[in-house]
């Protein structure tokens, strides 16, 4: 409950922030909404010496539509995403997911960028943004680079972010055509992180068959994964209940699942299938009604 000593910085620009991070390297960490890092610091699970707070850096919050993308600033809180009219209208699954992260207090401080950079294997955003095919914008002293969400997370609490880089933006392409998305998780009874969370974005063709889909699963493995078997099984199919059930049954394919207090690997694979089926049904319904 009492952190080790550290130096605190609240730089006013991204450039200053990355300069500080560059200077202190592995001894420094950037903090956004505090909801992942501060708990680790007070349990002394993180031994950083320099804390770089982005709160005074302008331009890192907010949600806008621009050039076919919904652009979410890295420091935008989960709450802000959950109540954004733009997000609710264009990317309802994102609003849904945001509104169920942690609890109300956590959502008021926790940010999308912070959550992604923390890369908890049970977090919601990686699945949702994988299904939505998001791109992350990363700033460093050398400028900006973009990384596809699928390339961003390397493993539990590990991403491609270098010590002197900051995740500044999440860019979600606005889906076109008859699309619909949904996200659902079975939360851990204590932590409320996802035991299994499934996100799906479905695109239907004019005839109502599945044109394409992106389905991602969080919670089961060491990092978010694409449910390619499910996607393949749906491809070109009429998304009736039987087809969805058959496809959803493959949700955990290829994921190495470990037994734990929540249940056996088999149980969790089953959960993935059950939740996937529900998520697919909701995504299809949204696509059909669009």
């Amino acid at each position: 409950m009492y952190a080790s000593e550290f130096e605190y910085y609240a730089p006013g620009t991204v450039a200053e922030a990355v300069a500080l991070l560059g200077k202190y390297g592995d001894d420094a960490k950037v903090v956004s909404g505090s909801q992942s890092l501060v708990p680790m610091m007070k349990l002394r699970l993180s031994s950083l010496k320099h804390l770089v707070d982005l709160r005074k850096v302008p331009g890192l919050t907010g949600i806008t539509e621009s050039g076919g993308f919904v652009v979410v600033g890295g420091m935008t809180t989960h709450h802000a995403v959950s109540v954004s009219e733009l997000v609710k209208k264009k990317l309802p699954m994102m609003a849904e997911a945001a509104g169920n992260i942690g609890d109300a207090q956590v959502r008021n401080l926790g940010t999308i960028g912070g959550s992604l950079a923390h890369a908890d294997p049970s977090a919601d955003w990686p699945a949702v943004l994988t299904a939505l095919d998001a791109t992350l914008v990363i700033a460093s002293a050398g400028g900006e680079r973009s990384v596809k969400i699928g390339d961003f997370i390397l493993g539990p609490l590990t991403t491609v972010l270098q010590p002197a880089e900051i995740l500044t933006q999440v860019r979600v392409p606005l889906p076109q055509g008859r699309y619909g998305g949904a996200y659902q998780k079975l939360p851990h009874p204590a932590s409320r992180f996802a035991v299994v969370g499934v996100a799906a974005e479905m695109f239907l063709d004019a005839g109502g068959a599945v044109q394409s889909s992106r389905i991602a699963i969080t919670g089961l493995g060491p990092k978010v994964s694409r449910a390619s078997s499910v996607e393949q099984a749906l491809q070109g199919k009429k998304p009736d209940a039987a087809a969805l059930k058959a496809a959803a049954a493959k949700a955990a394919d290829g994921i190495e699942i470990r037994d734990d207090l929540i249940g056996s690997a088999a149980y969790k694979a089953n959960l993935a299938a059950v939740i996937a089926e529900r998520v697919l049904a909701r995504a299809v319904a949204r696509a059909t009604n669009r």
């Binding site: 409950m1 952190a3 605190y8 609240a10 903090v31 505090s34 909801q35 501060v38 708990p39 007070k42 804390l51 707070d53 709160r55 709450h79 609890d103 109300a104 207090q105 956590v106 008021n108 401080l109 204590a190 932590s191």
Partner: peptide
Amino acid sequence: SQCGACTVTLDGMAVKSCSLFAVQ
């Protein structure tokens, strides 16, 4: 940061005051 006994408002929003440093 689970129990919520430390909940206060920060700029009008409910937050857990154990989940950030005072300098923040």
